[in-house]
Design a protein around this nucleic acid. Structure first.
Lengths: 153, 153
DNA sequence: TATTGTTATACTCTATAACTATA
DNA sequence: TATAGTTATAGAGTATAACAATA
């Protein structure tokens, strides 16, 4: 019976991890929605803010989605005033996705929100527990990555 | 400079947690896709398997989505042969969403997959580390839940 | 009157395939 | 020929509002 008990324990832990993923996602979605953004669109802003103006092709590769999808995401961001399509200096086929003033300001907000979230989540957690927690995350992350690579193989 | 350093450390930890949520989601999506399911539809099967035949209204409340949404999810599950709409014995307005043979078999597969995932993720993790990890998850989950409740007002 | 679930309508994310303009 | 990005088409999740059938 020991085995069954241990299994139930790890399953409960898995459930809490899954619950955490949902709760974290809900929290972010709510925040983004207040800014007129979605998770996918925010990722575009995040990338462009980090790497500077880039083509849609580069965005598609970075995000791991189709070129068509990026067209739609950028359309939405242009309409809502976060980015513009600027002509590429060397390639007339391509456009450089560039943050507007609003886009830049939003990227700063997202950055601060990320810092704030990290602070809120881990403040009051002793350094020792923080380390143990980080080790656990790394362990699980490695396993999941390996499983994904295995299936993709 | 100590503060900045610590902040960067917790931010990296947050990044890994977010990366884990994405990786776990991708892994589950791939598995579900092979079964002809999506995450939303699998949740319907999971609920009905756990609680027995239920109305769409009950499903909508349990999943926290609109009644319209459930209509669409059930439509998809009926078309793909996982559930049927059975007449409710006491209320002719309502239908009881019921698992087909395929639905029951799939629910068992999902259950086993959940056990297997828990086993894979945590096997080889010493009990002590497991406890520390669980504490960390609980801590973070409590904070996020509190943040969500706070915003919800 | 209130509730269950549908139709009507709309937005977002996502994909493949065909096509245009340019390299 | 190859590449960047669009149009065309399609499927899935999500929402609100109006409505029919029933409680």
């Amino acid at each position: 019976m020991k085995y069954l008990h241990e299994l139930a324990q790890t399953e409960r832990l898995l459930d809490r991890i899954l619950e955490l993923t949902v709760a974290l996602g809900d929290d972010m979605d709510r925040d983004l929605r207040e800014r007129g953004l979605t998770r996918s669109r925010a990722q575009v802003i995040w990338r462009v803010a980090g790497q500077g103006p880039m083509t849609q092709r580069a965005l598609a590769d970075a995000l791991g989605v189709s070129a068509r999808n990026v067209t739609g995401l950028v359309d939405g961001l242009v309409q809502t005033g976060f980015v513009t399509r600027e002509p590429h200096p060397d390639d007339r086929r391509a456009a450089l996705i560039t943050l507007t003033q609003r886009g830049v300001a939003t990227a700063s907000d997202l950055r601060r929100g990320h810092e704030q979230l990290a602070r809120t989540l881990f403040e009051g957690m002793p350094a020792q527990q923080l380390d143990a927690f980080a080790d656990g995350i790394d362990h699980v992350l490695r396993v999941v990555r390996a499983a994904l690579a295995d299936r993709a193989g």
